[in-house]
Design a protein around this nucleic acid. Structure first.
Length: 489
RNA sequence: GGUCGCGUGGCCGAGUGGCUAGGCAGAGGUCUGCAAAACCUUGUACGGCGGUUCGAAUCCGCCCGUGACCUCCA
């Protein structure tokens, strides 16, 4: 059904490439998931939404997709100056609870937020802490190949040795010589042969909470290891797509490629897909910058930078209106525009059910569907897809006003397009509540019929009084040409 | 400092050698008891200066502004 001509921008080759999986009809996709030491925020939302769009589209196109997205609950060093104190462990000590309790709490928050955003759950969601053995095996393999060395119970990746036969920097475009001269000298790096070497295993300091036994020391795995280990475990040494934010391009993904290449000669993934950042006032959102807004705060509106609450679907729609490789700047004004636009889209789609077919000839050409697929195929251009949907909404509204006569076939076509692209692929979901029982619904309709009678008799005082009361209790009433409409707000 | 990117109408944001992106806001109109919604009309934008071209916002150069990465980060 779908045209199988998806092109994706591959960071590895720096150009758009036709997507062609290694073993069709299967497609493997690995995405760097959250580090669960804090509340999920807009950035997490963007990553999840972008790759949800890709997941949905690949599935829609007939691929059997295995979507793996990890949970990082161990393994990220705070920084080298801290002598390798683990992020999760640090937070745990501050809050005086078990590290895994912290990880679990934020994992739960993350899942709840992702569900609200209507992101489909991944096929496999592995935790780094559950794959210590696999990570240790990977370290052994790299040591065996001679691309790592052990010092005092810690193991480091030998970047310069690796670079003699391979290209460290092929993904990020970095030049090794520049890196060597520009990398900062940090405390606690005396063990490493070179500044740019990175840890595969770190010996845990005595006060360190999270540690595991290993052949080298009681310690913990390095920060880039988990993704290599878990992608290989669930997708194979060579798989199709690796995704993540642009901020992970270097060093994280570069190091992953080095680890993968060192063990089996391949980069791992064929297509490396990176989405851009969310900015606030033109600056990247970050805790240290003080412009950090969690998803919970967006949904409740409780944040000093927010003038109102924004629904999960508004956030999703806002994200989808920009191409994934562009930065997207958050402002209240932009989000309000999205909220209204999304409402227009949903109302237009709902109007489709109220239009009765009148035309004998089709007015909607088949090009509509093709245009929509073209937008998706062009590196998942959801922004252009949405513009097409709005063009169609304009026509639908004209049909609603009897300015265009749609045929039965037209209406089916329009419904099909909206359901496929707006709901199935973009993952938009009307949030409008309906009356919870048939009884309520009947009562509302009865009241409105009374109002209509009053109106017909020009008893506007009564008509307005009924409408005012209904508005007050949360029922929005709109008059139409031959009756009324209502919805709960 | 090194590397890479971006600069589009009031706002957000697509596009990229010639053909109206789209949404929001604004103005005028149609409809309407009022309200709301919807529809129609309306703005001829691409940082500056040069160059290439029949033609550039789109390619090239320089300048200005701005951002990301180089440190955990979506």
């Amino acid at each position: 059904m779908a045209e199988q001509k998806l092109s994706l921008y591959n960071t590895l080759t720096r150009k758009k490439e036709k997507f062609s999986p290694l073993a069709p009809p299967f497609a493997g996709m690995y995405v760097c998931g959250p580090t669960v030491y804090g509340e999920p925020h807009l950035g997490h939302a963007r990553s999840a939404i972008v790759f949800d769009l890709l997941y949905r589209y690949l599935s829609h196109s007939g691929y059997k997709v295995r979507y793996v997205r990890n949970i990082t609950d161990v393994g990220h060093l705070e920084n080298d100056a801290d002598e390798g104190e683990d992020k999760i462990a640090k937070k745990a000590r501050l809050e005086q609870v078990e590290p895994m309790e912290v990880a679990q709490e934020y994992t739960n928050s993350y899942h709840a937020a992702m569900r609200k955003l209507n992101n489909l759950p991944p096929s496999v969601e592995p935790r780094a802490s559950g794959h210590i053995i696999e990570q240790q095996e990977l370290i052994s393999a790299i040591l065996e190949k001679g691309f790592a060395y052990e010092v005092n119970g810690s193991v480091y990746f030998d970047v310069e040795k690796y670079h003699q036969e391979n290209n460290y920097g092929k993904l990020s475009g970095r030049v090794l010589e520049d890196l060597l001269s520009n990398t900062r000298q940090l405390a606690g790096q005396q063990e490493k042969k070179s500044n740019i070497d990175f840890a595969l295993w770190k010996k845990a300091a005595p006060e360190h909470i999270m540690h595991w036994p290993s052949a080298w020391s009681e310690g913990f795995p390095g920060w880039h290891l988990e993704c290599s280990a878990m992608s290989a475990k669930y997708l194979g040494a060579n798989f199709d797509i690796h995704g993540g934010g642009m901020d992970l391009l270097f060093p994280h993904h570069e190091c992953e490629i080095a680890q993968n290449t060192a063990t089996n000669g391949g980069a791992g993934a064929k297509y490396w897909i990176h989405h851009n950042m969310v900015t606030i006032g033109g600056q990247k959102m970050g805790k240290s910058l003080g412009n950090f807004i969690t998803l919970r705060e967006f949904f409740s509106g409780e944040h000093k930078m927010l003038t109102q609450a924004y629904s999960p679907m508004t956030i999703r729609f806002f994200m989808l209106q920009a191409h994934y490789r562009s930065t997207i700047d958050f402002t209240n004004e932009a989000l309000q525009a999205s909220e209204k636009g999304l409402n227009r889209l949903f109302e237009g789609i709902a109007a489709l059910d109220k239009i009765s077919p009148q035309g004998k000839q089709d007015v909607l050409s088949d090009e509509w569907e093709q245009k929509c697929y073209q937008a998706m195929n062009d590196d998942l251009n959801a922004a252009v897809l949405i513009s097409h949907l709005f063009e169609l909404i304009r026509l639908i509204n004209q049909g609603k006003n009897n300015e265009i006569a749609f045929s039965k076939n037209d209406l089916q076509k329009a419904k099909h397009i909206m359901h496929t692209f707006a709901f199935e692929l973009l993952g938009l979901r009307p949030e409008k509540e309906t009356a919870n029982t048939e009884l309520t619904e009947n009562l509302i309709n009865f009241l409105l019929k009374l109002r209509l009678e009053a109106k017909t008799q020009k008893n506007y005082a009564t008509a307005d009084s009924i409408r005012d009361y209904m508005t007050e209790i949360g029922i929005e009433v709109k008059d139409t040409r031959d009756g009324f409409e209502w919805k709960l707000v």
